[in-house]
């Protein structure tokens, strides 16, 4: 079975997000006041797996081993059948 996983990697809360802060300031210049802006990276992974659970486990391992750095990142996985 073929699956698509949308992985979102973001900085852990409390970590400085200089890019997000800069975007927040620029939004202010446009007249939009915001409480906070956080940036994140999104990866879409197309993979074959035996089952939904198998796919989730594989993508979770990918996140832990490479896609995210657990010291500074949280990640979420949004999985669906392709």
């Amino acid at each position: 079975m073929q699956y698509l996983a949308d992985v979102t990697v973001e900085l852990k809360s409390g970590m400085l997000d200089p890019e997000g802060n800069t975007i927040k300031r620029a939004l202010g210049h446009l007249g939009y006041e915001t409480n906070d802006v956080k940036t994140a990276k999104k990866f879409t992974i197309d993979l074959d797996a035996e089952s939904f659970d198998d796919a989730r486990q594989k993508v979770d391992e990918m996140c832990q081993k490479l896609i995210a750095n657990p010291i500074i990142h949280n990640y979420t996985i949004d999985l669906r059948e392709a």
């Binding site: 900085l11 970590m15 400085l16 200089p18 890019e19 800069t22 750095n69 010291i71 500074i72």
Partner: peptide, 10 residues
């Protein structure tokens, strides 16, 4: 240990 994140002034 640790990680190197983006400079505080990026």
């Amino acid at each position: 240990d640790g990680a190197l994140a983006t400079n505080s002034y990026p």
